[in-house]
């Protein structure tokens, strides 16, 4: 009888936010077209490690399962990416799964990405349209601009660019590469442009755009192919203009 094909996974586990991480190896039966999520589900169904010991099921986050929500981001064989689009057939075994440790680990592969949402608030990554009366329709966006702005809107705050960036770590307060794309997106919007100056001023604050050291890992790592390094340079230009204008006078 032919030996049954299996998938071997080494998971870096952590029982809680302050617990010491440890490795645990699992082996699950192979099925065609498996992804990392389905392998994890298989472990969850029967949480027994290779030594035959019964253990707690590993924790991870997931939602859309089609690489648009960013929830299942983890470090797979050394590279941060989404577990849902990581196909077992295309991965070298044993498959090493680690949490994105740039973020606080909640448990096992689940991390707390709330710093990214705090960043979006700090850099005013929204477009204010509320008034005390109907403000009417805003200015139209030219089609060619809409096309490149759409690329920036694909950001799903998955955190992969922060994990890949050498300047996002516990020694710096740098907000991370994704923020550049979001500032550029909102500044490009004809209504959002009205608050361009506020956004740039906020982004020139503590932990802001100056934290970028141009290692350009972000643009290589981004699963959505967002041209982050183009946004970085573009926002650098906007910031230079803004800082000169605010020094010499806006009017």
């Amino acid at each position: 009888m032919a030996e049954r094909k299996t998938v071997r996974l080494i998971i870096l586990r952590q029982d809680g936010p302050k617990a010491t991480p440890y490795e645990e190896t699992f082996e699950v039966p192979y099925r065609p077209n498996m992804n990392v999520i389905s392998a994890l589900m298989e472990i969850r169904r029967n949480p027994v490690n290779v030594k035959g010991e019964k253990t707690s099921p590993p924790q991870w986050e997931m939602n859309c399962l089609e690489e648009v929500c960013g929830a299942c981001s983890m470090v797979i064989n050394g590279k941060p990416r989404q577990a849902c689009s990581a196909l077992i057939d295309k991965l070298e075994q044993p498959i090493r799964l680690e949490p994105m440790r740039t973020f606080p680990v909640i448990r096992d592969l689940a991390v707390d990405r709330s710093r990214m949402f705090d960043t979006l608030k700090r850099i005013k990554a929204w477009i204010p349209i509320d008034g005390t009366y109907d403000l009417g329709s805003g200015p139209r966006m030219p089609e060619n601009k809409r096309q490149w702005a759409y690329e920036l809107s694909k950001c799903m705050t998955c955190g992969v660019c922060l994990e890949a960036c050498p300047n996002v770590n516990s020694k710096t307060s740098f907000m991370g590469p994704f923020a550049f794309g979001q500032v550029e997106l909102k500044n490009a919007h004809p209504t959002g442009e009205m608050n361009k100056s506020e956004r740039l001023q906020a982004f020139m604050g503590e932990g802001g755009l100056q934290g970028c050291g141009n290692s350009q890992n972000c643009v290589q790592a981004c699963p959505k192919g967002i041209p982050l390094t183009t946004s970085i340079a573009a926002i650098n230009r906007q910031a230079v203009v803004e800082s000169l204008k605010s020094f010499f006078g806006h009017r």
């Binding site: 050394g78 890949a164 300047n167 020694k171 290692s215 890992n217 290589q220």
Partner: peptide, 22 residues
């Protein structure tokens, strides 16, 4: 100060610009 702030990672991300950064 800048040099000691970075967490060098060319072992995982051996891209040209990351090497230049280091």
């Amino acid at each position: 100060y800048i040099a000691f702030q970075a967490k060098y990672n060319v072992n995982h991300y051996g891209y040209f610009r990351n090497w230049m950064f280091l």
